[in-house]
Amino acid sequence: MEKKEYKKIVDRHKPTEKRVQNAIISFLIGGIIGALGQGLIDLYSNLLDISSKDASTFMIVTLVFIASLFTALGFFDKWVTFAKCGLIIPITGFAHSMTSAGIEYRKEGPIYGLGMNIFKLAGSVILYGIVAAWLFGTIRYLLMGGI
């Protein structure tokens, strides 16, 4: 916790150049992940002869698998430290937060460690996603009759 607060203070006093550099790195890495996603959709839809909608599911699972595996092997953390939001904002960040929480807390046991902490970071994404989707979905259904 202390470390986090210290990092926040450091971030606030960082020179502007660092911020510009961070933004450019995030743009490039995030963009590469986006293009990779489109590449995987094309690859799967050609290779397996499925619609691009089904291929996008395969693409999400592939990216989740890669992020989980690399986090488990230990070098994804370094990439995230370097690329920051370039890897956090894509779906890789979701998988990374779950796997890193899982590996970190597994020593505290299968229930109190892994089970209770696996959604520690990803939980807020799911919670606010569901609340927002329920609210906006109800509005859209009532106002416009759904799709």
Partner: peptide, 11 residues
């Protein structure tokens, strides 16, 4: 697009 969203988050 993906780059723009990521950059927005970073900013």
């Amino acid at each position: 697009f993906a780059g723009f969203i990521s950059m927005l988050g970073q900013l």
